[in-house]
């Protein structure tokens, strides 16, 4: 299909397009280097691993979109906790699947409520509130899950590793989730309120939006998604480990920024989260393929984040 001029122009104005272009370029370089070998496998792997980043990235995106200063640092601890708790409850059998799922969601709900209560009651910046709560949550996870390597229930393990025509089942589900959250963001009262608060908290209040209720819901949403990620990750990697959430703190923030969501708030970008997650994974794959060492991979990742944020600029002054 050939896009007509104006349509193409409009496509290029979408902030998420760059992350997909980047993904494409990185993939092409990798594939050309391997002379076409494993081109499809790379995509499959990228979809598999990006899925988890997308789940937490979506939650982080909602939080960041509610305006400057809002951020959720408790995501890794939350992943560790829900992974440990649910694996123990399900105890490797399918019988407790539903209970385990509900418990995971319960963890997320509690962490979200706790985060917001700290922000609200102690009147402290979200970064400190979620940081403090992450200490507690992580400790709980460590104490509860030490020495524990329970295999996930067969159904969960199968579900998270299932392939449908070379596409991971879980990725399809999370594409659906992203689509659903995109609708929530643009077509529901809640989503519109999030966008409004992020642009101008005062104006939002004066336009009749209950700002605090929306912020509460957003921290809870982020908590729920982190717990979901913990559950899926435990299923995927054959059991929960306590440090499995670690990399998702930086990753969740990075995909939000690279995906074209405004760090100043008020503009969110769901497709960009997928694009950025794929990009981040494929970038590492490319550097691997090119023979770059782990150190170079990390440096490149960092520099790209800084380059993207510098290009996007600070937009508006913080009040």
């Amino acid at each position: 299909m050939i896009l007509k001029g104006p349509a193409l122009e409009r496509l290029f104005k979408k902030p998420w397009i760059w992350s997909y272009l980047g993904t494409l370029i990185v993939w092409l370089i990798t594939v050309s280097f391997t002379k076409g070998q494993g081109a499809g496998d790379i995509i499959t792997a990228a979809l598999s691993f990006a899925t988890f980043t997308v789940i937490v990235g979506l939650g982080q995106m909602f939080v960041i979109t509610t305006g400057p200063g809002n951020i959720d640092l408790s995501i890794p601890a939350n992943i560790a906790l829900s992974g440990a708790v649910t694996m123990k409850i399900m105890d490797g059998t399918n019988d407790m699947l539903v209970v385990g799922f509900l418990v995971a969601m319960g963890c997320g709900l509690l962490v979200g409520i706790f985060n917001y209560s700290l922000i609200r009651i102690l009147k402290i910046p979200p970064i400190i509130a979620t940081l403090s709560s992450s200490f507690l949550v992580l400790s709980t996870a460590i104490a509860y899950g030490r020495g524990l390597k329970v295999k996930p229930p067969p159904f969960l393990a199968d579900f998270t590793t299932e392939m449908v025509y070379g596409v991971p089942m879980l990725a399809l589900v999370v594409i659906g989730l992203a689509f659903g959250l995109s609708v929530v963001l643009h077509r529901t009262l809640y989503g519109r309120s999030v966008l409004a608060i992020g642009q101008n908290m005062r104006a939002a209040r004066l336009a009749g939006i209950n700002v605090e209720r929306i912020r509460f819901a957003t921290y809870v949403l982020s908590g729920l998604l982190a717990s979901l990620c913990g559950l899926a990750l435990a299923g995927f990697s054959g059991g929960a480990s306590l440090n499995m959430g670690e990399e998702y703190l930086l990753a969740s923030i990075a995909v939000v920024v690279i995906g074209g969501t405004s760090v100043a708030g008020g503009r969110a970008n769901v497709p960009g989260i997928w694009g950025a997650s794929l990009f981040m994974f494929l970038l590492v794959t490319m550097l691997n393929t090119l023979g770059a060492s782990g150190g170079v991979r990390l440096i490149m990742t960092g520099l790209i984040i800084i380059a993207v944020i510098t290009a996007a600029g600070g937009e508006k002054q913080q009040h």
Binding site: A196, Q199, A204, I209
Partner: peptide, 29 residues
């Protein structure tokens, strides 16, 4: 600028924000 406008939004979105509640059908606007 500080109390009224949502600068990233369209005119239509700026006009409708206060009245969205009555435009909800099911779950969606």
């Amino acid at each position: 600028q500080t109390d009224g406008i949502f600068p990233l939004w369209s005119i239509s979105q700026n006009v409708c924000i206060r009245s969205l509640k009555r435009m909800v059908k099911g779950w969606m606007i």
